Amino acid sequence: MTKILVLYYSLHGNTRQLARHISRGIEQVDGCEAVLRTVAEIATITTTTQTVTALNTTDPIVSHHDLKQCAAIAMGSPVRFGNMAAPLKHFLDTTSGEWLSGTLIGKPACVFTSSSSLHGGQETTLQSMMLPLLHHGMLIVGIPYSEPLLHTTSYGGTPYGASHINHGISKQLHPDEIALAQAIGRRLATIASKLNG
């Protein structure tokens, strides 16, 4: 079984929804299994009980062992001023051991994000997540323009990765966002299977 790590941080649940749909896309590829993981919250002076409660999820906290076991990674974060959220960056900052040993070299990876506005920094956030993956020697997988929805959607979805725009009306993903999230999951799984086979 080709195990693909779907690693995310989500405060309000939007990025978590994308992670779930990417996982569904992964599991549409024979022999592939999505392994959902999140990262631990960072306690700060601004953390409140309400914030910590919002983080409750049934997905386990990622471990360094998960990085060794996976054949690929899908990594997601909400937009934080055009960058990935601090808890995800904090976890990545602890992966020097994997960098030194080359654990992730040659494995494919994709990225995903969500924001509350159309021009909220989605593409820079996706690119910010790519940088540590490139330093680890991973192979970045995007969404090609052979996906017809990429040409027509006015919701989330970029060639850099899957995305969601919460227009403040509903936290539900638009059908275009769901389809593009599943498409990148399938693409990541297909490539991982070929490289793993």
Rank of each mutant, 00 (worst) to 15 (best):
residue 143 I to F: 09
residue 102 G to E: 08
residue 52 V to E: 14
residue 92 L to Y: 11
residue 49 T to M: 01
residue 88 L to T: 06
residue 89 K to R: 15
residue 155 Y to G: 00
residue 105 I to C: 12
residue 94 T to S: 12
residue 44 T to M: 12
residue 151 H to M: 09
residue 73 I to L: 11
residue 34 A to F: 03
residue 92 L to V: 09
residue 157 G to L: 11
residue 148 P to M: 11
residue 146 S to G: 09
residue 90 H to C: 12
residue 165 I to A: 09
residue 94 T to F: 01
residue 113 T to N: 07
residue 158 T to D: 05
residue 130 M to V: 12
residue 108 P to C: 11
residue 98 E to H: 10
residue 44 T to G: 14
residue 92 L to I: 14
residue 53 T to V: 03
residue 104 L to S: 07
residue 96 S to A: 14
residue 113 T to E: 07
residue 159 P to R: 10
residue 65 H to W: 02
residue 88 L to G: 05
residue 156 G to M: 10
residue 166 N to A: 05
residue 35 V to I: 14
residue 70 C to R: 05
residue 39 V to I: 06
residue 81 F to N: 12
residue 71 A to Q: 14
residue 121 G to L: 07
residue 132 P to N: 08
residue 80 R to N: 15
residue 121 G to Y: 04
residue 28 Q to D: 15
residue 166 N to Q: 04
residue 132 P to A: 03
residue 110 C to R: 00
residue 101 S to L: 13
residue 153 T to M: 10
residue 68 K to P: 00
residue 137 G to E: 12
residue 70 C to V: 02
residue 72 A to I: 09
residue 137 G to D: 12
residue 112 F to M: 09
residue 154 S to C: 10
residue 139 L to F: 06
residue 158 T to F: 10
residue 98 E to K: 01
residue 161 G to P: 11
residue 126 L to I: 09
residue 64 H to P: 01
residue 136 H to Y: 13
residue 124 T to S: 15
residue 35 V to C: 11
residue 86 A to I: 01
residue 95 T to C: 13
residue 128 S to P: 05
residue 73 I to E: 08
residue 110 C to G: 02
residue 44 T to H: 09
residue 54 A to G: 00
residue 149 L to W: 00
residue 95 T to S: 09
residue 91 F to N: 04
residue 155 Y to M: 12
residue 36 L to I: 02
residue 64 H to W: 01
residue 130 M to C: 14
residue 95 T to D: 11
residue 116 S to G: 15
residue 116 S to D: 14
residue 131 L to H: 13
residue 162 A to I: 05
residue 84 M to P: 04
residue 104 L to E: 03
residue 157 G to H: 11
residue 44 T to K: 12
residue 113 T to Y: 08
residue 100 L to Q: 13
residue 58 T to Y: 00
residue 59 D to V: 04
residue 121 G to Q: 06
residue 101 S to T: 15
residue 145 Y to G: 04
residue 67 L to N: 00
residue 112 F to Y: 15
residue 121 G to P: 05
residue 49 T to Q: 13
residue 99 W to P: 06
residue 122 Q to F: 00
residue 141 V to S: 02
residue 54 A to N: 12
residue 83 N to K: 07
residue 62 V to R: 11
residue 39 V to N: 05
residue 31 G to K: 02
residue 117 S to R: 06
residue 35 V to W: 04
residue 128 S to D: 15
residue 28 Q to S: 15
residue 157 G to R: 08
residue 42 I to R: 11
residue 114 S to D: 10
residue 145 Y to T: 00
residue 120 G to R: 03
residue 55 L to Q: 02
residue 152 T to A: 10
residue 116 S to I: 11
residue 100 L to F: 14
residue 166 N to Y: 09
residue 131 L to G: 03
residue 73 I to Y: 03
residue 49 T to L: 02
residue 67 L to K: 03
residue 29 V to I: 15
residue 90 H to S: 14
residue 159 P to T: 11
residue 154 S to N: 13
residue 122 Q to P: 00
residue 94 T to Y: 01
residue 96 S to R: 09
residue 95 T to G: 04
